[in-house]
Nucleic acid binder design. Structure first.
Lengths: 342, 342
DNA sequence: TGTTTGCGTACAATCGATTGCACAAAAATA
DNA sequence: TATTTTTGTGCAATCGATTGTACGCAAACA
């Protein structure tokens, strides 16, 4: 199928015996154009399914009405939900969303950030990959004057707006909850500590134990346990301990799930012998028994807030910009896996 | 932060005492430009982090190097995975992906399709909303000569390329499997029949029963059961029947899950008293006991194929276009919920 | 030495829409 | 009727890059 040649503003002008400038103004409802002419133009435009060429107007006006979203992977529930929140705000403001996946690769991330530099987007909302140990690509981006907002996994030193979950608080809530339920020997599944979110969860865990004068037992801390598989392996180790813990605070739902399935297989009763809490409040947390207590991060809200911050920054370009950091309060969702008293 | 004025091709030309046309050609490694000049230009470009303005080149060249993806909701696993597959192919070909959500609203879908008409994208990959009963917006789109590919939920009469799962076959596979496992009284959770995919699943169910000379019992067919909640309600109805079915073929995993949880609560043994199969192979199918037998649709592949078809169509614009329909073979993933013999 | 060939670069039109400014016609005022 | 003000349109430059064509200069040839 050969593409028809475009129907442009010039065609409308010709049909109405006027000029493109008049048509352009009429399309924008400019009061300088007579009502009659405006009506004529707009009706013809609708009749012929005319839409102004986005690139031409964007080129001239300087705004692309598009923003980029850079995430590790869209098919992860958390990111997909955030994306949905971002789109919710941006669609309202007539912006489009360009989606980029780094697939957790630093090289790919760098390349994507660079290619988004010019014209394609008016701003960028990003969550960095696990591999990222250097942010010069983001710095270059910001230096060019393109607004950038980080969320969740952020590069802390960079002076840009950020939307975060209070992971420290979330961890605290979970651990306090376990302690309230009578747990004293609490194990911990920690994530990769170079990522801010996991670091803060672990920190929250440790400090809450300290606060309650509970001794920290290094044997009960398992590192880099965030998948179902590693969660299961960690559980197997736990089963070999002389003295079992009475609870696990996991930095993620997947590893909590792995632990639960493994524990059940071993005949451990959850939560009575072993209470477990996860982190992320995945949709499937209530799909099995015992349902999993977890921390909800309000992902949709994170997306909405990030988009809102970015829009503010885009629209107030002329005034001095002060980066803002929004920290969202997570929510403890209590389910059966942690309720010893139940 | 005030946006810096752009660093353009003209700045490079000025710094090198040459013209923009030479710079443009040098950037594209045009052999008409001397090697020395090419090197000088390219080095300066890298040094100054120059990227050609996407809109300007797109405007001139006519290709936006961007395609739109229209889905009901990105935070649904199936669509997110497809999106990931689409991106996988398109990123390779240096295309960007613009994501649009219809949120299952016909109005929103119409609006989005219209706004994508000009310039923003070189083509569109879409799955229609449940509400969509009219495809004039897509027709207008195609008439403009913009390539369109449908996937999964398609508008059948429209002469465009399509990527589909063989839902009929998938249903057949599931039901045959149940029959092989000795089931004879098979109930069915059907989805909304105006959507091709659900219609075909139901058709596959019915025809397989017929093929095996199993009487079709209307009391065992439950309509519009695709959520966890409706699945649970349907199960409750099943429990009141004089003669229980010995299996359920569900058109979706969520309703299968609802049924399983409800059945377990009622003390029904799965699969021994009641075998269940789902459809979609959601990632959480193996997160509970009994793990759920389901049909995998190879979502990532659907995305890849759709993107490939679209690219082909975009790049061969001059030749006659013949729409192609690709039907992917689904896969039966046998788990415990259906294995009576186990 | 005069002519041809080829190479590298520059000029200028173009993509489609936006917008400051100029200008003509109509309306309001003197 | 003459002059000023208002109102509606049109001209042309512009956004940044691409590309067909022209041109200058040097090497190669007769």
């Amino acid at each position: 199928m050969v593409a028809k040649k475009k129907y442009t503003i010039a065609d409308i002008a010709r049909e109405l015996n006027t000029t493109i400038s008049t048509v352009s103004r009429a399309m924008q409802n400019n009061p300088r154009i007579s009502l009659k002419m405006r009506k004529a133009v707009q009706e013809l435009a609708i009749k012929n399914n005319y839409q102004p060429d986005y690139r031409a107007s964007s080129l001239r006006k300087g705004s692309a009405k598009t923003i980029g979203v850079l995430v590790p992977k869209v098919d992860r529930q958390f990111f997909a939900t955030i994306l949905s929140g971002i789109d919710d705000v941006l669609a309202e403001a007539n912006y489009s969303v360009l989606i980029c996946q780094s697939f957790e690769s630093f090289e790919k991330e760098k390349q994507l950030v660079q290619s988004l530099m010019y014209g394609k987007v008016d701003g960028l909302i990003a969550s960095i990959s696990t591999e990222t140990h250097d942010a010069s690509h983001f710095e270059a981006y910001v230096t060019r004057g393109v607004p950038l907002v980080f969320f969740d996994r952020v590069w802390e030193p960079l002076r840009v707006s950020k939307v975060l979950t209070d992971d420290y608080l979330g961890a605290t809530m979970a651990v306090e909850h376990l302690i309230e339920n009578g747990c004293r020997r609490i194990a911990h599944f920690a994530g990769p500590q170079h990522i801010n979110i996991y670091k803060n969860r672990t920190k929250g865990f440790l400090n809450t134990l300290r606060k309650h004068n509970i001794e920290i037992n290094d044997n009960l801390i398992f590192h880099n346990v965030i998948t179902r598989d590693t969660g299961c392996k960690a559980m197997e180790q736990i089963l070999t301990l002389d003295q079992m813990p009475d609870a696990i605070f996991s930095s993620g739902d997947y590893s909590a799930l792995g632990a639960i399935l493994c524990a059940k297989k071993a005949g451990i009763e959850i939560p009575h012998q072993l209470a477990i809490t996860g982190f992320a409040n995945e949709p499937w947390d209530s799909f099995f028994e015992p349902t999993l207590t977890s921390i909800d991060q309000h992902a949709f809200d994170i997306g909405r807030q990030a988009a809102t911050l970015l829009l503010e920054q885009i629209e107030h370009k002329r005034s001095v910009f002060v980066p803002r950091t929004i920290v969202l309060t997570p929510e403890l969702i209590v389910r059966k896996s942690s309720l010893k008293t139940f």
